[in-house]
Design a protein around this nucleic acid. Structure first.
Length: 195
DNA sequence: CCAGTGATACTCT
DNA sequence: GAGTATCACTGGT
């Protein structure tokens, strides 16, 4: 079942849990690539009364963060370290500023195309890691603000039920409160984790 | 381990 | 407008 607008209206944490085990699909002229989401992180909102100062939406609406404050079910893409694109699933309602960073997935379809896009990388390194995931799936700046409900990139339910583990988020030491939020979610037992 | 890369947001003028 | 610090990362050593 393909996700509808409703599926994207929850908080970042709710949506992140729901995303583990779901399938990210991208249809292009070159072919279809699809993968099961095995790792993601929630951004935005509050945890035990503390605001998420690790979220890009924390400082408010700016040209860059416009998409995060829009309606759920759209894509927020940003460039990091001048080289890599990271893809987020915007959730909640207009003005909320909730997003889920996709950190890793397990290839299900179009593995050859992913390999072509990734150059030398094989195995876990093909799609485990936020920058690797976007490279393999062919996601870049042109998908900023794209609609997951009507576009060529979308999410559907996974076929198998999976168990979800959680831990602290990675690489946000700079966030005074946010660094301790247990908002990283992973598929239990999966090898496709960014480490 | 650590260099590479550029957009972004912030601080001055 | 210019200068600068920072970054939700990756790949090769």
């Amino acid at each position: 079942m393909k996700w509808s607008r409703e599926d994207y209206t929850g908080s970042a944490v709710e949506t992140a849990k729901h995303l583990i085990g779901a399938v990210l699909v991208h249809e292009t002229k070159e072919g279809i690539t699809a993968g099961r989401i095995t790792e993601c992180e929630a951004y935005g909102g509050f945890y035990r009364g503390k605001p998420d100062d690790g979220a890009h939406s924390y400082k408010g609406l700016t040209p860059r963060t416009q998409a995060i404050f829009g309606e759920g079910g759209h894509i927020y893409v940003y460039m990091i370290y001048g080289m890599y694109w990271c893809m987020n699933v915007v959730c909640g309602h207009e003005g909320d500023g909730y997003a889920v960073l996709l950190r890793a997935l397990e290839p299900l379809e179009g593995k050859e195309l992913m390999e072509k896009r990734r150059g030398k990388a094989r195995g876990r390194l093909l799609t485990a890691g936020p920058g690797r995931l976007t490279m393999a799936m062919g996601i870049d700046k042109s998908f900023y603000g794209a609609d997951l409900v009507h576009g060529s990139v979308y999410i559907e339910d996974g076929k198998e039920k999976v168990r979800v583990e959680r831990s602290k988020r990675i690489n946000i030491d700079y966030a005074r409160y946010g660094k301790n939020f247990p908002w990283r979610f992973m598929m239990k037992g999966s090898l496709w984790i960014s480490k």
